[in-house]
Design a protein around this nucleic acid. Sequence first.
DNA 1: CAAGATACATACCGGTCGGTATGTTATTTC
DNA 2: GAAATAACATACCGACCGGTATGTATCTTG
Lengths: 222, 222
Amino acid sequence: MTRIRNPEQTRRRLLEAASHEIHRNGFQSASLDRILKKAGVTKGALYHHFPSKAALGLAVVNEVVAGKIRSNWVMPLGCCDDPITAIRTVLAGSLKDLENDYMALGCALNNLAQEMSPINEDFRDCCGEVFGEWRGGFADVLRNGQVRGLVRPDIDPESAATFLVAAVEGTVGMMKNAQSFEPGRQSLEMLDAFLESLRPQAPKQSLPVVELQGATEGCEAC
Amino acid sequence: MTRIRNPEQTRRRLLEAASHEIHRNGFQSASLDRILKKAGVTKGALYHHFPSKAALGLAVVNEVVAGKIRSNWVMPLGCCDDPITAIRTVLAGSLKDLENDYMALGCALNNLAQEMSPINEDFRDCCGEVFGEWRGGFADVLRNGQVRGLVRPDIDPESAATFLVAAVEGTVGMMKNAQSFEPGRQSLEMLDAFLESLRPQAPKQSLPVVELQGATEGCEAC
DNA sequence: CAAGATACATACCGGTCGGTATGTTATTTC
DNA sequence: GAAATAACATACCGACCGGTATGTATCTTG
């Protein structure tokens, strides 16, 4: 077969196929042969672009998974002036998005982090950096809210951010196991209450419900 | 080699070795040969006691992992009359225990649930039942607290229980990735605030800190 | 004590794994 | 246009995988 060459496209096809395969089966159980079949390239091409399976996996984290975390969880946080509402909107929207798309497979970042952290330092650090970006997004919004008097000054934004990421990943995991959005609904109920309690004068009861938005769209609730 | 026979012990050795191996490498990447070597038995013995690798894994969940969840997370909830304090004590104690023991490997139940739920219905259901027990433990304590006027009547105990399990699993995952208890400390800070907000008249600020206890010991704070 | 069942041990199987060696063709460089 | 190189394609490798067939020793049962 004589094919027209397009190295960048070949690389992208490999990354995307690997991303899907790893999302489904985990990194260790991901099969290079299945990835190659899905990408429509051969082993020679793979090992021309990546020196090893591990390098391919790390590239998936850095170039595919990290991008999704940013676009789904970090960037949308700027949609709204009120930090609490912004976070509530992003949580509800992104979890809802997950229901439609990849609920059964969970969060690609967390899957990899949980599988690989104990056995591979490169993956651990790589995933850790992306988690750090994610936490940083929450923390920045909360800290900024404190400066503007919209968030209680006595809470630690870093702790709250870590807690939020942990709660989200835990919730996604429960949804994956239950094959249902119901755990997401229940967790969101409690997360909303928690987030409202971060306001300077927490009102007695729950605030008006924020309407769900696609994660990549603007927040019209604000 | 002529050995004295002890079928029950052989079975137990297999389960324990498999439990460790699966905890380290996940189910799919767990090697039967490594399990056999660790258990000190041969393949013939394994396939006499278990019809397949999957059956061995399911037995690990039902007979090893489920027991640990019960003894670490469910049973200690009865340590204390006050439900909020009881939950806070169990969370702090069990997460601290994890720091000393298997922090780097995370929660065996969640590891398996996340890895296998999308690809194996038996594992999904099996882990789902254990999660259900765990949630049930939290929900029972909260509901009982509502009856006694110690927990706000307007929260849904099931939702709160789901959220707590999700938050714990998410937090354990963050600890595993960070190879540090710090995310646990941060999450606990927020979880404590959340739990205190479940009291009928939530006080303005945080309550006295609960001293950490071993998960299997009584709660002397009560 | 004999017979059957239980509890292993050993050797081996086809298949798949990640990785490599080598060959070939398109593209760039001089 | 020739040489060099980048971009693949193909064939193959040893290691390991879960599983099985078969043999053997121990234990239970009548």
